[in-house]
């Protein structure tokens, strides 16, 4: 029996900026419904890896296969519309309403306006922003958490099979962050997307990941489930946990599923 085709298959990917190699021989497969968390310190190449996937950064070697087709064979504009993208600083268009922001990809894909409106209302409801109250607002009239909810609605609107999330909750206060993390898990079970999630927050990784990929100096140091990662049975995860400031490390907390 053949295993189902992966949503995303990264094969021996290397990437460099100038003379410096940012990513080194990365291979990674992500299936539908799976959240793979890229964990690592600043500068380890996590964000670059995300940007290689949607073509914001060009890979030097290797291949990325999305939905069974190499990203080099995709029309880049078309491909990006099938990959949801959520970033730390939201990136909402300040001159567009919440509804227009959330419906951006649908508009690019030439949906009819009534269909866009219906879909946008559905998505705003799904991310916890009642359309009656929020659809006509502008981003400057929203809190950080609300902005990121719009960012998530925008990423999900066209029902893409893959989501890329680059520290989506890092700019939020702890309470809002926790709310959005909870909400993300609900959405994930509803929509069953494949997700590649970048963070440097171990707790977030443990909470959200199906698998944790520890990146170090542009290479994969370790791939582990949260349970294995937390138990510190591997030298790599032990080293990473030990390298953290004790203030942010809470290994005494139960792992998800315990």
């Amino acid at each position: 029996m053949n295993p189902p085709a992966a949503v995303l298959d990264i094969r021996n990917l290397s990437c460099r900026v100038g003379d410096r190699w940012i990513l080194n021989n990365i291979s990674l497969r992500i299936d539908a419904g799976e959240t793979v968390v890229l964990l690592g310190r600043s500068g380890c190449g996590k964000t670059t890896l995300l940007k290689c996937v949607n073509g914001l950064v060009q890979a030097a070697q290797g291949d990325i296969v999305f939905q069974g087709r190499s990203t080099s064979e995709w029309d880049p504009y078309r491909m990006r519309r099938f990959i949801g993208y959520v970033i730390q600083d939201f990136g909402l268009f300040p001159h567009w309403t919440v509804a227009a922001n959330a419906g951006l990809v649908l508009k690019l894909e030439n949906w009819e306006p009534p269909a866009i409106e219906a879909r946008v209302h559905l998505m705003l409801d799904a991310v916890g922003l009642p359309p009656a109250e929020f659809a006509a607002r502008y981003p400057r009239q929203l809190s950080g958490g609300q902005k990121q909810r719009v960012g998530i609605a925008r990423a999900l609107a066209a029902d893409p099979p893959l989501l890329l999330l680059d520290e989506p909750f890092a700019a939020l206060d702890p309470i809002t962050r926790f709310e959005l993390q909870q909400h993300f898990m609900e959405l994930r079970s509803t929509f069953r997307k494949a997700a590649l999630f970048v963070t440097h927050d171990v707790r977030e990784a443990l909470m959200l990941a199906s698998r944790i990929v520890l990146l170090k100096d542009g290479a994969i140091d370790l791939i582990a489930t949260p349970g294995t990662f937390l138990s510190g049975v591997t030298d790599e995860s032990r080293a990473f946990l030990a390298s953290l400031d004790s203030g942010t490390r809470r290994v005494d907390e139960p792992a998800p599923g315990d």
């Binding site: 949607n54 914001l56 504009y77 078309r78 491909m79 990006r80 519309r81 990959i83 993208y85 970033i87 600083d89 939201f90 990136g91 909402l92 268009f93 300040p94 951006l104 990809v105 690019l108 925008r154």
Partner: peptide
């Protein structure tokens, strides 16, 4: 950031 989002949305 707005420009990056615009590119990334296709």
């Amino acid at each position: 950031i707005v420009r990056e989002a615009a590119v990334a949305m296709g």
